[in-house]
């Protein structure tokens, strides 16, 4: 029988290939270099933490959805991403059961109780880290181990902790080690080069847009340059950009869809807020690192930002006097 020359269907006629699975797969690919380097630098213990965190995140998601009689959607990969992100922001020497507690907090308390994927009002991994920090402050602070390959493998404090306590100045610091990730810190946050490679991959595949990471990092740099208590120094600014979780947070945490604004202008506002709060905490606050709290605080402002900055309705003209 001859095929009809035209096909009658309903809209939409053009479908994008975007899906949750594809997005999550791309995020996993983008995080892989940082995770691999984390294991290289911090040893097999880091690998255990990653595996435990991912496994327990997936298990909690499946278990909750089973108990709540919801469709079990662990195959979409979002729990894997949350578990991996959580592991990457934990100190490598943490007791191995703590990632399980963290995964429970991330998946059950923050994500599923508020309605599951797309309904969380905070970034689950960051909220879990903040809760672990509040619950187990001591292990979360002293469990940083030096990378196996570092020249002085005895030091266990992170560069930001040393900056905070004044034992260390960025002048003459080993920038190459910071760039590669051969310094103390959370499992996946130390290697700037791996994170930047992953970030560029996400930008190239259009999983994320440039607005949040660029405005986040740029505003942090500008704030450091202007308001560092010891005055401007290019080395200090550069070191603050490389150290800690700034790059990881800017590319992978702050860009989480449900907890970031929709419009480009809103995203830039959000990123600037994150950058400024991060540096306020680092330079003036009691904690050495402020990325996690900065993003969590800005997560709370997202509904407000989206309320006031709305995209123009297609075809609607701007009012007179407005751009």
């Amino acid at each position: 029988m001859e095929q009809p020359r035209y096909i009658v269907t309903t809209t939409p006629h053009i479908r994008s290939r975007d899906s949750i699975e594809r997005t999550m797969l791309f995020v996993l690919i983008a995080l892989a270099p940082a995770a691999v380097l984390g294991v290289v630098f911090f040893g097999v213990r880091a690998l255990f933490i990653i595996l435990i965190s991912v496994t327990s995140a997936v298990c909690f998601e499946a278990l909750y959805q089973k108990l709540a009689r919801k469709p079990v959607t662990v195959t979409d990969g979002s729990a894997v991403v949350t578990g991996l992100l959580l592991a990457l922001i934990l100190p490598p020497g943490l007791p191995l059961w703590m990632p399980v507690v963290g995964a429970f907090a991330a998946i059950v308390l923050v994500k599923q109780l508020f309605g599951g994927l797309g309904h969380n009002f905070l970034n689950p991994a960051l909220a879990a880290r903040a809760m672990l920090m509040a619950a187990y402050a001591l292990p979360m602070t002293v469990s940083f181990t030096a990378p196996r390959t570092a020249p002085d493998a005895t030091a266990s404090a992170t560069p930001l902790m040393l900056l905070e306590s004044g034992e260390f100045t960025p002048a003459g610091a080993d920038f190459l080690a910071s760039f590669l990730g051969n310094v103390g810190g959370s499992i996946g946050e130390t290697s700037a080069v791996a994170l930047l490679a992953g970030g560029v991959f996400l930008l190239a595949t259009k999983v994320i847009s440039w607005h949040i990471p660029v405005s986040f990092i740029a505003s942090a740099a500008v704030f450091t340059a202007l308001f560092h208590p010891e005055g401007f120094s290019g080395e200090v600014v550069g070191y603050h950009m490389l150290a800690g979780g700034l790059i990881l947070g800017a590319f992978f945490m702050a860009t989480d869809y449900p907890t970031s604004p929709v419009t480009p202008l809103g995203k830039i506002l959000f990123g600037v807020g994150c950058g400024v709060i991060t540096m306020v905490i680092r330079l003036y606050g009691g904690f050495p690192e402020g990325v996690a709290y900065a993003i969590l605080l800005m997560n709370l402002t997202v509904p407000l930002i989206d309320r006031y900055i709305r995209p123009h309705v297609l075809g609607k003209r701007a009012k007179a006097g407005q751009p």
Partner: peptide, 15 residues
């Protein structure tokens, strides 16, 4: 085993 300090703090009460 480290104690979960969060449970003693006000958020723990809510949870």
């Amino acid at each position: 085993i480290p104690r979960n300090i969060l449970m003693i703090l006000p958020p723990g009460g809510f949870f």
